[in-house]
Amino acid sequence: MSVRYLIRLPRPERARGAEPALAFTAHGAEAFAEQLQDALRTPALFERWRAMQPDPDEVDPALGATDPHAAVGGDQHDLHVDLVATTGLSGTILKHRLRLLAGNHWELRDVRA
């Protein structure tokens, strides 16, 4: 079952995670959407994060789940970016990927089944 997550980046220029190698590099709604979509569809972001952990083999492999059908769209507004992510991944996984990409500079506005 897919779930639709409405996400806001209130200050897109600050939407960067603590680790530059994992953080958004995007400028603009379409680029943010593309990078989040890639993080949900492929294991690349998770694998880079896992490799940075003190004991990568101890990381729960379930946290690396992907959804090849995940779709993310983005809309640019005056001072913020709205993203709509539709995925079968759990909220826990989505939030983990967003923290890696954007740090604490994002808001989950709504969740719909």
Rank of each mutant, 00 (worst) to 15 (best):
M1Q: 07
S2V: 14
R4L: 07
I7G: 03
E13T: 02
R14S: 08
A15T: 10
G17V: 02
G17E: 03
A21S: 11
A21R: 14
F24S: 03
A26Y: 09
G28L: 06
G28E: 07
E30R: 15
E34R: 03
E34A: 03
Q35A: 05
Q35E: 15
Q37S: 09
D38F: 02
L40P: 11
R41I: 12
T42A: 00
L45C: 02
E47T: 06
Q53P: 03
Q53G: 04
P56E: 14
P56A: 14
P56Q: 13
E58K: 13
E58T: 11
P61D: 06
P61Q: 09
A62L: 11
A62R: 15
L63R: 09
L63P: 08
L63A: 01
G64D: 04
A65D: 08
T66K: 06
D67G: 03
P68F: 05
P68G: 10
H69A: 10
H69Y: 10
A70P: 00
A70G: 01
V72P: 00
V72K: 09
V72H: 04
G74P: 15
D75V: 14
Q76V: 12
H77Y: 14
H77P: 00
L79C: 09
H80W: 15
H80A: 12
V81H: 00
V81N: 01
V84W: 11
A85W: 02
A85L: 11
T86W: 02
T86K: 15
T87M: 02
G88I: 02
G88Q: 03
G88K: 08
G91R: 15
T92K: 13
I93G: 10
I93C: 06
I93E: 06
L94T: 14
H96A: 14
H96R: 14
L98A: 10
R99P: 00
